[in-house]
Amino acid sequence: HDTTVHINGLRIEVHGASEEILKWIEEAARRGVEAEEIKRWVEEALK
């Protein structure tokens, strides 16, 4: 999927993410993980 995830006011563009990654992002956000940190993880995961 190409999608934009909104976390604590930060937009994260996610290209080619699976449902699993999207669920993981939402879970991390709920746990209060910094949005910048999530963004870094997602970029690494999608390389």
Rank of each mutant, 00 (worst) to 15 (best):
V14M: 07
E43F: 15
R11A: 14
I12M: 03
W41S: 02
A28Q: 07
I7W: 05
W41P: 00
I38L: 04
H6T: 15
V33H: 03
E34Y: 09
D2P: 15
G9W: 02
I7P: 02
K39N: 04
K47W: 08
A28T: 01
A17V: 09
A35E: 06
R40F: 06
A17Q: 04
A17H: 04
R40P: 00
I25Q: 00
A35V: 10
I12C: 02
K47Q: 10
A29P: 01
K23E: 08
R40H: 07
R11C: 08
A45S: 06
A28Y: 10
G32W: 04
R30N: 11
R40A: 09
K23V: 08
E19S: 11
V42D: 00
T3R: 08
K47D: 06
L10M: 10
E36K: 08
E27R: 09
A35N: 04
G16I: 05
W41R: 05
E27N: 10
A28R: 01
R30K: 13
K39T: 05
A28I: 04
R31T: 09
I21W: 05
E34R: 12
A35W: 13
S18Y: 06
T4Q: 09
R31H: 08
E27F: 08
I12F: 07
E37S: 07
W41D: 00
G32F: 06
E43W: 13
W24L: 04
W24F: 05
I12V: 06
R30P: 02
E26I: 15
G16K: 05
T3P: 08
V33W: 14
K23R: 14
E26K: 13
T3W: 08
T4F: 10
E13Q: 08
I7Q: 02
E27H: 07
R40K: 12
E26L: 15
A35R: 03
E27Y: 10
H1I: 13
R11K: 13
E19D: 11
H1L: 11
E44K: 13
A29H: 09
A17I: 07
I21N: 00
V42T: 03
E36T: 11
V5S: 04
K47H: 09
I38D: 00
D2N: 14
A17L: 10
R30T: 08
L10H: 07
V42A: 03
E19W: 15
V14K: 01
E20G: 08
A35H: 06
A45C: 09
V14S: 03
A28L: 14
R30I: 11
D2S: 15
R11V: 14
R11F: 09
H1N: 12
V14W: 08
L22W: 11
A28P: 00
L10R: 02
E27Q: 10
E19T: 11
H15S: 11
A28K: 02
V5P: 03
I7T: 02
R30D: 07
G16V: 04
E13C: 15
N8E: 09
E37P: 00
N8Y: 01
W41T: 04
A45L: 12
T3A: 11
L46K: 02
E27C: 12
E43M: 15
V5D: 03
V42M: 03
I38W: 04
I21F: 06
V42W: 02
R40V: 06
W24R: 02
G32N: 04
E26D: 08
K23P: 00
I25H: 00
H15N: 11
R30C: 05
E20F: 15
D2W: 15
G16F: 07
I12L: 06
E44A: 14
E20K: 08
E44P: 00
A35F: 14
A29E: 08
I7A: 04
G16P: 03
W41L: 06
L46M: 11
E20W: 15
T4H: 15
V14Y: 07
D2M: 15
E37G: 03
L10S: 05
H15W: 15
E27L: 13
D2F: 15
V14H: 02
A28M: 15
S18G: 08
I25N: 00
I7R: 01
V14F: 10
